[in-house]
Design a protein around this nucleic acid. Structure first.
Length: 606
RNA sequence: GCACCCAUAGCUCAACAGGAUAGAGCAACUGCCUUCUAAGCAGUAGGUUUCAGGUUCGAGUCCUGAUGGGUGCGCCA
């Protein structure tokens, strides 16, 4: 994947850097060949072998002019003799497995155990401003599961960028105009009897969605009636009276008819109130909101400019186009023959506005992969218009959420509603918690908060652990798990740690002596903790919260093994005990930080 | 028709810029709570990584082709 952040280097890998430069030295001394340390790549050692880092020697056999084993052996001996970080090494075929001295890990723990990552994790993005656009709903129906994936991705990506030092501006671009809103409005006028959210008790977005469905139903009936009268299907679709009403309403809207505008504002207002509740429940927010009704005209100016520059051309019917066939794309309409703007026109305007208003360096669009082509064209056009910001644009494309029956279709009623799903998650969390009965001492309010925290985590983790670019399957019949590789599992590990810390008293935060024996599970956990910064960088570079989700599972698993293998509070050697508590403490801090990047909270008790 | 994306255990997903015997979880089966939270830990079983070629010390990963699935190519947004 091409990343905006490729130029950045790896961070916080001091140990690897040192070893790499020692290996580089070894090549010079042993084989009289210069290999820059940056080219010496170390990997994590596979679990079934002894060691922490692995250097693969196969590519260097021509230099050493020895067989793989001998090459690895010689390099191993050289770096062992240096006696800095390396405690021992093992050679398996062409793999040099390096074990770091345990005292290095104790040192790392001593220096970092109180790291709470409150000011971010890395500093690579300092001084850079990035805008992340996500959510971007239409205002004619409530949010569904697809929007949830979008929102969670956008929110998490924003957190990831912030954690790497970027200044992030989260924006929502609301598609508040167009024929779809007019459909809801038309149906409401016809069948609504002045129904309002307060008169009906319906959430505003659901109320408006209800009339969107009602429109579709009436429309279909009218088409069928016309066809029964012998009218051609295509003509029937155009001539159905209710559709004519809707299109007429759109024209009136564009003319600024006060009555229509007023109704439009009222109904959109209901929808925004509804969205606000869903966003709040979901735990996402925005720094700024754009409305297409405000930005769609700006694109026209850009189209004018493109015409003057000769980048665009005009057909006889006055419609404006760009020919991208030389760029392996098609011709694309930019302005209708009647002079009104299309989707692309609006997006040109919005793109321009973003950079003008916020002086950003990069602009990221979190939009589903069905619009891959649209963004390819959009970016290409801005490039042709010689916009300096064109190279800072990035489409974060993600796959659709499928149901076992296939794609979600609102017309077939197979859409998983966001509000319903969230309620179900909370209810399931409540049931599971009550079964386990671990909430003693908690007030009713605290319990309720806990159930929401657990339900949300299960849902968010379930969605974010999947690589964004892949489509994913959601089965409503099988409820989302609370066991295994889940958000719940990570939360549980955190709660366990906090329980330890609560019972540990105060004295454990003392400096540690260096020669503390570590259990292998502890070393495994420490290495993961050490790698956290780099995981956060990787996740941002590849725009993938899934990397952080996987890391959370790895870390929680590693700690749970420690928990099983050794005692914390009952350890008699005070040095060892303190060391373990520091390990637990830092693991807790790191879990909290990492889950925070996913937009997931962790409980003190569960 | 043209373009883009995807294909890994029965199911849901991993595999870190090509590396060792392809890993987890769920489902199935076995063990482990009179000691720090069993929403946990340990184990058994489950694979020709869709297929056919190629590149090289080495391919799930890169290239070519095929098959299967998805999406886009509207004066819709």
């Amino acid at each position: 994947m091409i990343s905006l952040f490729l130029q950045t280097s790896k961070v916080s890998m001091q140990i690897e850097k040192k070893i790499s430069s020692e290996i580089s030295e070894a090549f010079k001394t042993l084989f009289d060949t210069e290999i820059p340390a940056e080219q010496i790549i170390l990997e994590g050692t596979k679990k079934e072998f002894e060691g922490n880092f692995t250097f693969v020697v196969f590519p260097y056999l021509k230099i050493s002019r020895l067989n793989p084993e001998a090459t690895a052996q010689k390099i191993g001996e050289y770096i062992l003799e240096k006696n800095t970080l390396v405690g021992s090494f093992q050679v398996v075929k062409g793999f040099l497995n390096i074990t770091i001295k345990q005292e290095q890990w104790v040192d790392f723990l001593n220096n970092n155990y109180n790291n709470n990552y409150a000011n971010g994790v890395n500093t690579i993005g300092r001084g850079q401003k990035v805008m992340v656009e996500y959510s971007s709903p239409n205002t004619n129906k409530p949010l569904h599961l697809g929007h949830i994936r979008n929102n969670l991705l956008g929110y998490s990506i924003s957190n990831l960028l912030k954690a790497n030092g970027y200044e992030v501006i989260k924006v929502n671009l609301i598609n508040d105009r167009g024929i779809h809103i007019c459909k809801s409005m038309t149906a409401w006028l016809k069948f609504g009897n002045k129904e309002t959210p307060s008169s009906s008790g319906l959430k505003g977005d659901h109320l408006v969605g209800k009339y969107y469905v009602a429109f579709d139903k009436a429309y279909k009936e009218e088409i069928d009636a016309l066809i029964a009268q012998g009218v051609e299907k295509e003509l029937a679709e155009k001539e159905a009276p209710i559709m004519k009403e809707a299109t007429e309403m759109l024209v009136k809207w564009e003319q600024g008819d006060p009555e229509i505008i007023s109704l439009w504002q009222t109904m959109n207002g209901w929808v925004y109130d509804g969205f606000e509740i869903t966003y709040k429940t979901l735990g996402v927010d925005f720094d700024h909101t754009y409305y297409e009704s405000n930005t769609y005209k700006l694109g026209k100016e850009i189209v004018e400019e493109g015409l003057k520059k000769g980048v665009f051309y005009q057909e006889k019917d006055n419609s404006v186009w760009i020919d991208l066939t030389t760029d392996k794309l098609d011709k694309k309409l930019l302005l209708r023959s009647n002079g009104t703007s299309v989707y692309m026109t609006q997006d040109l305007g919005t793109a321009e506005l973003k950079f003008k208003e916020f002086n950003i360096n990069k602009s990221i669009y979190v939009v589903g992969n069905e619009q891959d082509y649209h963004f390819k064209v959009l970016f290409k056009i801005l490039e042709k218009l010689e916009r300096p910001y064109a190279k800072g644009l990035y489409h974060l494309s993600y796959g659709m959420v499928d149901l076992p029956s296939g794609k979600m279709k609102s017309r077939e009623g197979t859409v998983v509603d966001a509000d319903d799903l969230l309620e179900e998650m909370f209810e399931t969390a409540r049931q599971k918690s009550e079964e386990l009965g671990k909430t003693e001492g908690m007030s009713a309010i605290e319990k309720n908060q806990l159930y929401k925290m657990l339900g949300l985590a299960a849902l968010k983790f379930f969605i974010l652990k999947v690589d964004p670019q892949k489509r994913m399957l959601f089965n409503p019949q099988e409820s989302i798990d609370f066991q295994g590789d889940t958000g719940t599992f990570v939360q549980y590990t955190y709660a366990r740690i906090q329980s330890l810390i609560r019972q540990a008293g105060k004295d454990w935060e003392k400096d540690l002596s260096k020669n503390i024996p570590l259990h292998e599970t502890e070393v495994e956990t420490l290495i993961l903790l050490y790698k956290y910064n780099n995981e956060v960088l990787k996740a941002a570079q590849s725009f993938s919260p899934a990397i952080i989700a996987a890391y959370c599972i790895d870390l929680a698993k590693a700690f749970n093994r420690v928990y099983k293998e050794v005692s914390f509070l009952r350890e008699s050697d005070i040095n060892v005990k303190n060391c373990r508590l520091k390990l637990a403490f830092l693991t807790g801090k790191t879990i909290k930080s990492a889950m925070g990047l996913l937009g997931i909270e962790v409980p003190e008790q569960m």
